[in-house]
């Protein structure tokens, strides 16, 4: 049923899809770490720290990812910082999605009732312990569905690194499309591959949402 151009190039495109998944994982992990740190600093940090975090969030929320990628690609080399493109791409993606992740975590943490803090503190728990025992276990469950959504946004955004010449699924698609003169079949096909990755992840997110409540 699939067009032959697609079947002929399926091996190449699969390897490229593997690269997309790899790039996604390599970016999700640090962006989750950044997101958690920024969320905590925004909630508990001193005023100057909170202002600093706000500036970071403001810039990342207001400037396109592509412009940040160009910054890494065109501007940083002039200041003597020559990152390997893959590392640079992952770094920019992590910083960019770290901001989105921080909102996911922050929203989950502050949505927990104050009484949870009161109860933990009244037992004599200190802040770190309260976070570890009481707050995080609940916040992670609350954050799971929006976290998965953000991961899907991130996976889709890995396609942008093709514009700064990194090889992944979208880049491979362009190569194959140019070679075979079958852009419709090829881009249709890689859209399907993205769909397969993202849709299965979103179903997993729904499954998590279903099991979110405790004791059910």
């Amino acid at each position: 049923m699939l067009p032959t151009v697609l079947i002929d190039n399926i091996g190449y495109l699969s390897r490229a899809a593997g690269m997309t998944i790899l790039l996604s994982i390599a970016s999700v992990v640090p962006s989750a770490v950044i997101g958690m740190i920024v969320a905590l600093l925004k909630i508990f940090g001193s005023v100057p720290i909170r202002v600093l975090m706000d500036v970071y969030l403001y810039v990342v929320r207001g400037v396109p990812l592509l412009v940040l990628l160009f910054f890494m690609y065109f501007v940083l080399p002039y200041s003597g910082l020559n990152l390997p493109p893959t590392l640079g791409g992952v770094l920019v993606m992590s910083i960019y999605f770290g901001a989105f992740m921080s909102e996911v975590f922050r929203a989950a943490i502050i949505s927990l009732p104050r009484g949870q803090w009161d109860a933990a503190r009244s037992l004599g728990m200190r802040r770190a312990r309260t976070l570890g025992i009481v707050i995080f276990p609940q916040a992670f469950r609350l954050a799971a569905p929006p976290f998965v959504n953000t991961c899907i946004l991130l996976i889709k955004s890995t396609s942008l690194v093709s514009i700064i010449s990194l090889w992944e699924l979208t880049m491979a698609g362009r190569e194959v499309a140019e070679r075979t003169f079958a852009p419709m079949e090829i881009f249709g096909g890689i859209a399907l591959i993205y769909f397969g990755i993202c849709y299965s992840l979103s179903r997993y997110g729904q499954y998590l949402e279903g099991r979110m409540r405790f004791g059910h």
């Binding site: 009484g115 949870q116 009161d118 109860a119 025992i133 609940q138």
Partner: peptide, 11 residues
Amino acid sequence: MVFQSYNLFPH
């Protein structure tokens, strides 16, 4: 301390 809204840890 015991609170009006119980504040048990739901997890």
